[in-house]
């Protein structure tokens, strides 16, 4: 036997958002308003998380800066300032200049345009792929599982850079979005194996059985029950992938596709800036700073999303609990205010 400590005892009464306590359920005119579906609840819980909202705002601001800065920045990323090579940040060159006189601010903003999309898309694609493949293989088992895991193992043992190098001539000159796809395609396999393992245990849970016995279609069971129950893993995986993709992109650009000069990305900027990080720090610092801010923001949003989906996390309820505690405290104070007569009696 374990000692169960009922910490929710006080939350029991305080935790009715939307004030539905006053609505009489059965004879309410619009019953559609009564129920809050999971999607709505998740959004509500997410919106309660201040850090996550700040993260979201930061990402939006980064996008806005990246795409709107050409309107007000003094230099464009293609212009060269022949009078100023390698100058430190100043009034006319906010982030300094490179050794051929490019304006670092314009470069970083241009790089940001690419890298934001690369990071987010790759994170999304690779994690979705691993969730779909892993959950399908794990849920169905049998030959579906064997075929899919064979594919996964194959992709894992093949050095992806080698394949990309071989494929690169075919994609030369095509849009850089193709290579977002390729990056995504080569980074999902390990997670897929983990997801498959988790699915094996999840599919034996009684709630999955219950869904099966009520006639729910397999893919719906995967979407409604299995994936949400691994959301924490998937979200962490996606946020890690975002940062990794921005860096991995430099390696691929080296093979001559993706972002090519004179176009830049944060990855290529960081790669070329590393050599001079000690001597001309602005070449390295500004792009890496933006990368760090971006990855942090994604992480915070990811944490918020995880807390919003996971009902056991404190994050989604924090405000509620504070409210509950306050209400409880108020009630107690009131009781105390009403009780002095009684207390006095006892004391005497």
């Amino acid at each position: 036997m374990t000692v169960t400590i009922d910490s929710d005892g006080s939350g029991e009464h305080a935790n009715t958002p939307g004030g539905s306590a006053s609505v009489s359920p059965v004879d309410a005119g619009a019953p559609g308003d009564l129920r809050t579906s999971r999607a709505k609840l998740v959004v509500r819980r997410f919106a309660r998380n201040r850090n996550a909202l700040i993260g979201l705002v930061v990402i939006v601001l980064l996008y806005a800066a990246a795409f709107l800065s050409p309107l007000f920045a003094p230099w464009s990323y293609t212009e060269l300032d022949y009078d100023n090579f390698l100058v430190s940040p100043s009034g006319s060159h906010w982030f300094g200049t490179s050794k051929v006189g490019e304006d670092m601010f314009a470069l970083v903003m241009r790089g940001l345009q690419k890298s934001l999309t690369i990071g987010l898309l790759v994170g999304l694609i690779s994690t979705s792929l691993s969730a779909i493949v892993g959950a399908t293989a794990g849920y169905f088992g049998g030959w579906v599982d064997r075929a899919m895991m064979w594919l996964v193992d194959l992709l894992l043992v093949l050095p992806s850079f080698l394949i990309l190098a071989i494929l690169s001539p075919a994609f030369k000159g095509k849009t850089w979005l193709i290579f977002v796809l390729l990056l995504g395609l080569f980074s999902w396999m390990i997670t897929a194996r983990i997801v498959r393992g988790m699915t094996f245990t999840l599919r034996e849970r009684e709630y999955v059985k219950a869904a099966r016995f009520m006639g729910q279609a397999p893919w719906r069971i995967i979407v409604k029950h299995i994936v949400p129950n691994m959301a924490s893993l998937l979200i962490i995986d996606a946020t890690v992938n975002v940062g990794a993709a921005v860096i991995a992109e430099t390696g691929l650009s080296y093979f001559g596709f993706g972002v090519q000069p004179p176009d830049v990305s944060l990855g290529t900027l960081i790669a070329s800036g590393t050599e001079s990080a000690q001597t001309f720090p602005w070449l390295f610092l500004f792009p890496s700073m933006f990368l760090v801010v971006f990855v942090l923001a994604v992480n915070v949003v990811g944490d918020g999303l995880r807390d919003a989906i996971d009902p056991n996390s404190a994050g989604g309820r924090r405000k509620d609990r504070r409210k509950a505690r306050k209400e409880y405290q108020d009630a107690k104070d009131k009781a105390r205010a009403n009780a002095p007569a009684l207390a006095g009696k006892e004391a005497s």
Partner: peptide, 12 residues
């Protein structure tokens, strides 16, 4: 404990 999906509100 196991027969209800922990991540689904009761309504769902």
């Amino acid at each position: 404990m196991a027969s209800l999906d922990p991540r689904m509100p009761i309504g769902d």
